[in-house]
Design a protein around this nucleic acid. Structure first.
Lengths: 228, 228
DNA sequence: TTAGGCTCGATTGTTGAACAATAGTTGGAA
DNA sequence: TTCCAACTATTGTTCAACAATCGAGCCTAA
């Protein structure tokens, strides 16, 4: 699954030919972001400038603009005079991620004015289907969709962007350790209960359950991280 | 107060001589950020590349790295092939800012585990002193410190960064319209009440007061914005 | 007079090459 | 073996050039 830089170079080159666009720097950033998110570039992998520009067909200057963008998103770590690396989340990073989520998600459940829950139901249905099929990536993805959907209730672009970023880092966490196939399974039903409470108007209860959920998930992830 | 680009060029040049550092792009970004935050570069002002590099003593490439950083912080707006401008918050931006604050700040009051309130008391004291002296900037600054301090209760770097960014945009809002000298004054006592409730352990009440406070402030700001 | 279109100039977008600065490595001497 | 010094590869930064795009001013035609 996780490959080194050299292995995906041909793949990247294929998508780069014949593409012209405004804002090349942003395009290059999204190109790399996608690869990292998909786990094709493992955490800790070094992103050397020279081969990357060659393959993306952009200059070093433009590539560095992309690096600046990704560094701002914590997707990539820049070590002066050493280079740019795919971020490798530490235990502290995991704690920070869940700190953010433990404020954002309960707040969304508590104070959102809009409440279109179709997307949330759909996410749960997808998670259950994935569990039935034994698809771990399917469960992970559907679970992320659910929690992103909770924050989407806020209707705030900024908060959604923050959540998107945090979830991207969650994927890095999963990519940087052997994933327990059973990690996501038990949480699916928790999500369903939270949603039910929310729709019943018991927002405080839904928020409390969410806090509890997030604490357990954080704990489990920290233990797995310590083992790795 | 608010000057155009040409007027602060000499000033910028003065601070730029003889400064060497790692990460020049970030340094240039902070240089511009400070000027914008202080209101020396008014919202809507155009940041031309050529004079700016000349004055900061950096190349266009480095300056563009700085622009990428600032654009990510919404401090600056980039219009393709037109250039970079100091962001001019719209009414929608104001709504978005308060949307973020209405989730972040009550959440901090509700679910923070730590609660060192010294900084909050200090901010209120400073606000009262400023009100006594009739210092509008003093009240504005102290008020921002109070609300930043509330979010600081979360102990989350990300949430604090988000709040810092939002407050920077708030300053842009104030800079882009004639400030009512009495805007901040009445809110100082609201802050004090919120803090008292929080320290009394009545977190839900504190959060509810905060939501109310933010709604009123948003409303007042939107009306002032419509007039401008 | 004025609407529409054209050219021109200025500024941004992107590139390639150059040089400086730094980290890691290699090789040699004690 | 250990330590220190040159060496090498890569990053940090600058520069100069060219392409792409926008806006202004001008010209023409109804």
């Amino acid at each position: 699954m996780a490959m080194t830089l050299d292995e995906i170079l041909p793949d990247l080159r294929r998508q780069s030919v014949d593409v012209r666009h405004a804002e090349t720097g942003l395009w290059a950033a999204s190109m790399l972001r996608d690869r990292i998110s998909a786990g094709q570039l493992a955490p800790g992998a070094k992103l050397s400038e020279e081969p990357l520009c060659e393959v993306l067909g952009v200059s070093r200057n433009t590539l560095r603009e992309a690096f600046a963008t990704l560094a701002g998103e914590h997707v990539v770590t820049r070590i002066p005079n050493r280079g740019v690396f795919v971020a490798r989340p530490t235990a502290d990073d995991i704690r920070e991620i869940y700190r953010v989520r433990r404020f954002l998600e309960p707040a969304a459940l508590t104070w959102s004015t809009a409440s279109p829950t179709d997307a949330l139901h759909a996410a749960i249905a997808r998670a259950r289907a994935a569990r039935r099929d034994g698809s771990v990536p399917g469960m992970a993805s559907a679970n992320q969709d659910f929690h992103a959907g909770v924050v989407a209730l806020t209707r705030s672009d900024r908060l959604n962007a923050q959540m998107t970023q945090v979830l991207a880092e969650m994927r890095l966490v999963f990519h940087s350790m052997v994933a327990d196939p059973l990690f996501h399974a038990p949480y699916i039903d928790d999500n369903a209960v939270i949603l039910a409470k929310f729709e019943a108007g018991e927002r405080a209860a839904a928020a409390a359950l969410m806090v509890d959920y997030l604490r357990r998930a954080e704990q489990q992830l920290l233990e797995a991280h310590a083992r790795a």
